[in-house]
Design a protein around this nucleic acid. Sequence first.
DNA 1: TTGCGTGCAAAGGTTTTGCATGGCA
DNA 2: TGCCATGCAAAACCTTTGCACGCAA
Lengths: 136, 136
Amino acid sequence: MKNEYKTKSRNLIIEYLKAHSDERFTARDIVEALSKDEASVNRSTIYRNLERLSQEGKLVRYKETDVAATCYQFSEGHEACHTHMHAQCEECGKIFHLKNDVFKSASKKLQSEYGLEIDYGKTVIMGICDDCKKKK
Amino acid sequence: MKNEYKTKSRNLIIEYLKAHSDERFTARDIVEALSKDEASVNRSTIYRNLERLSQEGKLVRYKETDVAATCYQFSEGHEACHTHMHAQCEECGKIFHLKNDVFKSASKKLQSEYGLEIDYGKTVIMGICDDCKKKK
DNA sequence: TTGCGTGCAAAGGTTTTGCATGGCA
DNA sequence: TGCCATGCAAAACCTTTGCACGCAA
């Protein structure tokens, strides 16, 4: 990792992330949120920072079939996201950071029956969370 | 479903699908493959047919973080894809159609520990298949 | 003949890039 | 001062859309 400067723009972006922790957002969302005159950040800067943050593992980056843009999600207080599996509620977009033992047995079966070794860091289980189930 | 015509373009596209069964491809791949003078199909036509085929469930349609374009995959001879879980090799893109019992125990843990109900039809497990592991 | 499908061109939206400038250390 | 980060504008991509024409049934 290269030397890193603290800049006004970067701070504003991280502020946004913390304010929207565990929520799904797109680059566009940030662009719009940070387009006010007092606190304006350029589109390129936002893309470059999101790129950087996700490479550092501080941000989950993913795509959805029904969303045109790339989605991101920020969570405070967990280890780098490429070390564990994720699940996501397809309703609200919330991401769950899973303990690896949940998939121990499935992992073995996949290996023996299909010859596939799970990549925990890149797998996202889709489903519906209790909160969203209640709302229906 | 509305009445459906058999057209030359549509046939060429389906021909491509069958020739590339179980492989990952993008709209662009087809556009390039079907740009030869004798058998040329327009971009819009390809997009429109892919859209249609995936709505009919004959084509799996998905996005990947590291691929700019939408990916597709065609498989002959298995039941509709929304009934079972999938796994995919992140190296070659091959999709595996999984038996549901592989994730029985993981499914229960997810429900009890995280309050999440797996959507089998939308989940894709990522990993590396034996073939690709050997090649490395 | 009817109406679905195609081709063409243009537009829309997202993301990337080059270059000059500005700001942190 | 030296290097990193930002802003701006333009470009690159992927995908969609409107319209007129062609072709299957």
